[in-house]
């Protein structure tokens, strides 16, 4: 369905507006198509090796997909993103909630937080490799450490906004610690957790690529470095778009359904 017409025909104004405006999905498709057209036109005009046309990028994609190489590197990066994401969300949430609840703890640790927020990702990665060696744990740890301060800040905000009325209700009705956490605290933190996850996934995979480029011998970051040496822009774009597509699928198939389930109580 491309056009949002019908149904509201009894209201003339609504109807007129509806036939003219497109559905959000159609707008998204149109917008992406526009971007593709611009790329294509510019690439044809430039006619240069450093800006390949969409078909050239697809050829590069197909070349590595057929050998299975692309899937292997995608999987390696995805594995690192997954573990770093889980570690960052768990550790960051725990610290963030603690700082949001305890004013004293927050006063003491706030300078640390500002420090970590401002350490460049590259420095964390390089130091992790020097201190812990060129291994998987150092790589995943470095990605997580880069993300943790952001999670802490968001979750601290959430913990500060906890509803006092509900806390009192839970006390009067003698909710135990687990009940309180599951039914009172966590649902209130859910929007903050969702926000941290969203920005987290985007940030983590970008950092994962740098980590791979600097000290791993597989993954999308490693491949992009390789194609950089070969000056193969089509290969670089093929890997980038493939991974963006994977992240979009995760967003559409996992993140959004989960969020819809968690917020089903909201009045629409």
């Amino acid at each position: 369905m491309a056009i949002d017409a019908g149904g509201t025909a009894n209201e003339e104004g609504t109807n007129r507006r509806a036939t003219r405006s497109l559905t959000p999905k159609a707008v998204t498709a149109l917008s992406l198509l526009g971007l593709l057209v611009i790329w294509w036109v510019v690439a044809v005009i430039a006619d240069s090796r450093v800006l390949p046309t969409p078909p050239a990028v697809f050829d590069a994609f197909w070349r590595d997909a057929a050998t299975g190489e692309l899937w292997f590197h995608l999987a390696m990066t995805l594995m690192r993103v997954f573990f770093a994401f889980v570690a960052a969300m768990v550790i960051g949430s725990a610290i963030g909630i603690a700082l949001g609840i305890s004013r004293e703890a927050n006063r003491f640790f706030d300078p640390w937080l500002i420090l970590f927020l401002n350490i460049p990702a590259l420095v964390v990665i390089v130091l992790a490799y020097i201190w812990f060696g060129l291994n998987e744990v150092a790589a995943i740890g470095a990605i997580a450490v880069n993300k943790i301060p952001n999670v802490v800040v968001t979750m601290r905000e959430g913990a500060r906004a906890l509803d006092r009325d509900l806390t009192e209700m839970a006390e009067v009705y003698r909710f135990g610690a687990m009940k309180r956490l599951r039914h009172v605290v966590l649902p209130q933190l859910q929007p903050y957790f969702a926000a941290a996850s969203r920005s987290g996934l985007a940030l983590i995979w970008k950092i994962a690529l740098v980590v791979e480029l600097l000290g791993r011998s597989d993954g999308v970051g490693f491949q992009i470095n390789l194609y950089f040496q070969l000056f193969d822009v089509a290969g670089i774009l093929a890997y980038t778009l493939a991974f963006v597509a994977v992240m979009l699928l995760i967003e559409l198939l996992i993140v959004q359904p989960l969020e819809a389930h968690a917020t089903r109580w909201r009045r629409t």
Partner: peptide, 19 residues
Amino acid sequence: RIAAVFQEPRLLPWRTVEQ
């Protein structure tokens, strides 16, 4: 046990009436 009915209903909006 002590029960309280507050000025606001103070229900958990993310749980059903029965829950």
